[in-house]
């Protein structure tokens, strides 16, 4: 069974906190830990920020977010129809920023990779960018059951 949520927002920095809150609220039905939810919030924040400031150069545009839950697996897609990325590999290098004129750290993709299980980037210059963030929320209750079962075996 697959559960989905879709959201479209304007390219406006005030929407960054809105999107990360909505995504976290959607995934909270999986009963994740506070830390797991914070991880998703940070990664989503990075991708939406990039869509707005890099994709649309802080100008007008639309950012689309699609969340999917299949079992314990979640996927969050963040898409823009902005300038796109010519060299994705280089863009994802730690500390690389295409905008040294702004106060950027170049750590956005590194944070996405650190906090998510998978990060997939598809981009075409002049057409836009799609970032797909994957994370599995291991079922805490399942973990306990397994621990209890193996403890039982040992007795």
């Amino acid at each position: 069974m697959c559960e989905t949520m879709q959201l479209q927002v304007d390219s406006d920095s005030r929407n960054i906190s809105f999107v990360r809150a909505v995504v976290a609220a959607f995934f909270s039905r999986l009963d994740p830990t506070v830390e797991e939810l914070e991880d998703v919030k940070t990664a989503v924040s990075e991708a939406v920020t990039n869509a707005i400031i890099h994709g649309y150069g802080n100008g007008p545009g639309v950012v689309e977010i699609k969340c999917t839950i299949i079992g314990k697996e979640t996927s969050t897609m963040i898409q823009d129809w902005g300038v796109g990325i010519a060299d994705v590999k280089k863009a994802m290098e730690p500390l690389y920023t295409g905008r040294p004129d702004l106060e950027r750290s170049g750590m956005g993709f590194s944070f996405m990779e650190a906090f998510m299980d998978t990060v997939c980037v598809e981009s075409t210059p002049g057409r836009g960018t799609k970032v797909i963030l994957g994370k599995i929320f291991p079922d805490v209750a399942e973990g306990w059951k397994q621990a209890a079962a193996s403890a039982g075996e040992r007795v």
């Binding site: 924040s45 990075e46 106060e103 170049g106």
Partner: peptide, 13 residues
């Protein structure tokens, strides 16, 4: 309660 890499960029500047 929340900070992402934008905060790091601001601090580095």
């Amino acid at each position: 309660v929340f900070m992402d890499s934008a905060g790091i960029g601001m601090l580095l500047a």
